[in-house]
Design a binder for these strands. Structure first.
Lengths: 230, 230
DNA sequence: GTATCCAAGTTGGGATACCAGACTGGGATG
DNA sequence: CATCCCAGTCTGGTATCCCAACTTGGATAC
């Protein structure tokens, strides 16, 4: 009987995780070329696990093929719009199901997560909570496909959200929108929670697109590939 | 050994496609173990492209890890329910957007596809059209994420749909439900199209679950792993 | 000065050798 | 007869080597 837990991650998973972090943290810029040989030396492994990691990251949309070459996925303004359109029905469904299925302890855990965001905590924490909130709500739906899909959406939105120029006001707005959604779920008000979710998604989309378009020139100057957008 | 033109299709893609077909056609049974060495000899390639293909198939949900081993994904009754719950909002959104965005020529192409299904054409064709209909409707939405998600759903439902015991009546019912949805889209009646879509998805779910539960014993006898279901 | 072309270097794709861990079966032991 | 143990075997994971296709840069011809 195999009762053994894999205590040591395979190199493929290590490289996958590290490269993922480098891309999401913009340590590797959007559109930047990745050669298997460079990655091999960078992570001190052979090309075999490097290639396996690249294939997985391709499925996540963080890495793409450019002809025969690998590149970190560019920031795509059209994609941000499509993602907003895509996640609306997903997250509406998630909050409605959460109203029906979530227990109080689940909601308490998410509330605590939100409460961890107060003036003074580093921006990384705000960013992470902003992602996790949506994923955890989806998890309350009990539907693994909703969770996977929302995770995918938030992964793809991670870099745009990081590049957004944050004002104190917009940060507080997003936080209170999250808070309102959570309260509506707790009050078992699916219609209200849905409406707030749609509003939040559209606000987020508009903020991201406006900010990225405004900074487009500067971001390109940093070597970041920003494509799409009309 | 291989001096073929690589521009056409890498071996990884060939193996991916062939293995995918073998799994979807139940040539490889649900739950069946796959060893890299067997695949290597079966497809006359080395383990390198075999492993890349397996990683991709894992992302599609057709292949899983079982401990350190690879297996063809079992049929999971719980998954069929979760998929129905997941695809409802997706396909509602797709038909609504299709009402707004689809042109007549697009709709004609789908109608022709449906018309190709008449008594006498082989079951494979009915099966394929039943999948493609939903994907093509999603394509009319113009949203690539909706397309990808619906493709994923239909891929995961492919084997259950194939295993379902088909009566003449249920086949005709599914066909006419498709037809009605298409007509409502053509008439730009999003509310009606949505209602019909939900109805169709729930009918499909119930038919699949009933049929699989009834045949569970027989399918297991054929060596097929059928898991889940309460 | 410009266009052309070829050789050297680089890239990803594939093949293969080797490794460590897990499984299996049979034999020794109580 | 049951139990335990160990070696042989098989597995996926990794490193490394070779190859064909592409890129590139500079010499050459005009």
């Amino acid at each position: 009987m195999q009762s053994r837990i894999l205590h040591d991650m395979s190199q493929m998973l290590q490289i996958h995780s590290q490269l993922r972090d480098m891309i999401l943290s913009l340590d590797i810029g959007p559109g930047e070329r990745l050669t298997e040989r460079w990655l091999e030396s960078r992570f001190d492994g052979s090309r075999t696990p490097v290639r396996a990691a690249l294939v997985r990251l391709e499925a996540e949309g963080l890495v793409q093929r450019d002809g025969r070459n690998w590149i970190a996925a560019p920031i795509d303004l059209g994609e941000i719009e499509a993602l907003a359109e895509f996640r609306e029905p997903l997250e509406i469904t998630a909050v409605r199901l959460a109203c029906a299925r979530a227990g109080d302890t689940d909601l308490d855990a998410i509330e605590e997560m939100l409460n961890a965001c107060r003036p003074g905590v580093p921006r990384e924490e705000w960013h992470k909570v902003g992602t996790d909130f949506h994923v955890e709500i989806a998890r309350l739906s009990g539907n693994p496909f909703l969770v996977k899909a929302v995770e995918g959406v938030m992964t793809r939105l991670s870099r745009p959200r990081w590049l957004e120029v944050w004002t104190e006001a917009s940060r507080e707005q997003a936080w209170s929108e999250h808070r309102r959604i959570l309260d509506s779920i707790r009050a078992k008000q699916p219609a209200e929670a849905s409406r707030e979710t749609v509003e939040h998604i559209r606000d987020t989309r508009d903020r991201l697109l406006r900010s990225l378009k405004d900074d487009r020139r500067g971001l390109r100057a940093r070597g970041f590939a920003i494509v799409g957008g009309r």
